[in-house]
């Protein structure tokens, strides 16, 4: 089952400090205000992320979830991964290796873990489910 709503992939800037974070938030605000927004933030370019940047990520996720949407992170650079880890925020987001994986995850109805379980089952089970 696929959704027809668009998935917006946004690449975060190299340096996400207070000023850049505010600018970034201004850019994504229209997407956040749409109905059931589906957002993917690509953090592959991020070399410097501070607590303001983390606040912006959390704010965006809150806004997206409030409108019955979701925000997923993709391609975390090592720098951003460490900051998200030490600020205990990494566990709040769904994180994917690439933006494509993250965008694709929106299009499937079943959550990842359910899909994984289905694909791991023997063929007879799959047929049963398909039936």
């Amino acid at each position: 089952m696929e959704t027809s709503r668009p998935v917006v992939v946004k690449r975060m800037p190299t340096r996400v400090d207070q000023k850049a974070a505010r600018e970034f938030l201004r850019e994504v605000q229209p997407f956040l205000k749409s109905d059931r927004p589906q957002l993917v933030f690509d953090l592959s370019q991020v070399k410097q992320l501070d607590s303001t940047g983390v606040d912006v990520l959390l704010h965006c996720m809150t806004e997206a979830v409030r409108r019955d949407g979701d925000l997923k992170l993709a391609a975390l650079s090592p720098e951003s991964a460490i900051i998200l880890e030490i600020t205990r925020t990494a566990r709040l987001f769904e994180i994917y290796e690439t933006s494509t994986d993250a965008a694709r995850s929106f299009t499937s109805f079943l959550p990842n873990f359910v899909r994984n379980q289905i694909t791991r089952r023997p063929a007879s089970d799959e047929e049963h489910i398909a039936a």
Binding site: Q48, D50, S51, I82
Partner: peptide, 12 residues
């Protein structure tokens, strides 16, 4: 992760 990063945020 075998990486060293600089953190300029004084809150961290």
């Amino acid at each position: 992760r075998k990486i060293e990063i600089e953190v300029r945020d004084r809150r961290l």
